[in-house]
Design a protein around this nucleic acid. Structure first.
Length: 269
DNA sequence: CGGGCGTCCTGTTCGC
DNA sequence: TGCGAACAGGACGCCC
């Protein structure tokens, strides 16, 4: 579910409630997430939350001595509630603060994760990640270098964490539409100009979505319970057989690497 | 090693 | 209407 804009929306939503607060308890109703929750996470108790950061689609709760790292998987979301709010189905974890506020994690499919690590560098999940898309480190020169000799479709390549992080299935289709590049094009065949357009499109689509509070298809809610509004801006994702807003020909869909992909046969080359 | 694909899980939607 | 199949925002890890 959540791609970078949804994770960033969640970060911005929880930051003011968590920063400088002290963790009173962790309530784990279901420890079996993507990986079983490490019992050492109890070490977080009594610690102050210094900051809430993000790397790729991971949320990083920086404590005085250690880190809680949260991934929302496909169907996860976080909400800020008061301590005595009854837990419903699929509400697997509460982070309880000593002021009575809780951070509640919901994840029906349980593809998400709550990780504990004393040092961020120790987490294998963070070790092989590519650059953040919204930094200067992700630029046309870098991507051009990365696509050399790559025989996968460009859409598969930009969804690869080792190349660039945070671009999931929705924003891959949207970025390629904005850059006017067909998603099934073999990566190494892109021209330098196309790579430049694609890098700019990825940045722009992600930035615009963050401004709108992310994209709500079904489950995703901002931490205040409101949906994300970027769904209203989607140009191709989920619009198969509807007419392209630009040229009014029907949007196509096709599976690429087992993932449904949307594009305009006329606007994209 | 690059690239393809199965896998973890539940809920919803689709087609017969 | 009922039922099973297909599919859904991620990404690891195994296979060749």
């Amino acid at each position: 579910m959540p791609e970078l804009p949804e994770v960033e929306t969640s970060r911005l939503g929880i930051l003011p409630y968590l920063k400088d607060q002290t963790i009173a308890a962790l309530v784990i109703r279901q420890p079996k997430l993507r990986w079983p929750i490490d019992p050492d996470i109890e070490l977080a108790k009594g610690q102050r939350i210094i900051d809430v950061k993000r790397r790729a689609k991971y949320l990083l709760l920086q404590l005085e001595h250690g880190w809680i790292v949260i991934h929302l998987g496909m169907s996860g979301s976080l909400r800020i509630l008061l301590e005595d709010t009854p837990a419903q189905k699929h509400e697997h974890v509460d982070l309880v603060l000593d002021n009575g506020v809780i951070l509640r994690y919901t994840d029906p499919r349980r593809f998400g994760a709550w990780l504990w690590t004393p040092f961020l560098e120790w987490l294998p999940q963070l070790k092989k990640l590519g650059p953040e898309p919204l930094t200067d480190e992700f630029n046309a020169e870098y991507l051009h270098q990365q696509i050399a000799n790559k025989k996968v479709p460009i859409k598969t390549l930009i969804m690869d964490n080792h190349i660039v992080v945070g671009v999931g299935n929705i924003y891959a289709s949207e970025s390629l539409f904005m850059a006017k590049i067909l998603p099934m094009r073999i990566a190494s065949t892109l021209t330098q100009d196309e790579v430049t357009l694609l890098v700019a499109a990825i940045k722009r689509v992600l930035e615009q979505s963050i401004k709108q509070g992310g994209t709500t298809l079904k489950d995703f809610l901002q931490t205040d319970g409101k949906p994300g509004y970027f769904v209203q801006q989607l140009q191709v994702y989920g619009r198969a057989q509807h007419l392209c807003f630009t040229c009014h020909t029907p949007i196509c869909s096709q599976k690429i690497a087992q993932r449904n992909t949307f594009y305009c046969q006329n606007c994209q080359k």
